[in-house]
Design a protein around this nucleic acid. Structure first.
Lengths: 81, 81
DNA sequence: ATACATTTGTCCGTATGTATA
DNA sequence: CTATACATACGGACAAATGTA
């Protein structure tokens, strides 16, 4: 995961944007591949110590940016080219 | 059977839909002929490494699509033209 | 007539994951 | 953060009908 993947709750950037940036970077880095699921919301909550609502905001941002797509009852998947 | 006939449990498409697509393709390809039985649920469980409930969902989908028909205690048969 | 194997039908419980309030 | 709902998947068990030995 890396030491730079921590949320700074005191900084000017909202946690949901930090998480979105982190996840986008990890995808770009190849941590998860196209059409493969990223960790569940619950897992991200545990990993980054955020509220679920925050995780969902971050994912919504990534969906907007077409970085991932959500499949109901299945998970959140990396958008393939 | 082909190397593309494997179930991807991590992908966005539910396994039961993947199996339905695989079986429909195999029927179209002529692996099994009209009014002939396709493999039993138990065999499909073994072949594709799925739970029986999942196999049954896939078959239910094919019945809906009129690709096959089920005869209780006899098997599942390819719908003839 | 009996026994056995096969196949579908049905129901139970457990687990995971997302959706919504 | 909690609770509920829904969809999906797995595993097991038993019943009912059929076909065969």
């Amino acid at each position: 995961m890396g030491p730079d993947d921590e949320i700074d709750h005191a900084g000017p950037v909202p946690p949901y944007r930090q998480l979105a940036a982190i996840l986008a970077a990890r995808i770009k880095r190849g941590d998860w591949h196209p059409d493969r699921a990223i960790p569940s919301e619950a897992q991200l909550v545990g990993t980054y110590g955020l509220a679920r609502a925050t995780v969902r905001r971050a994912i919504a941002l990534l969906v907007e940016q077409d970085v991932v797509y959500v499949v109901p009852q299945r998970g959140t998947f990396v958008r393939g080219r």
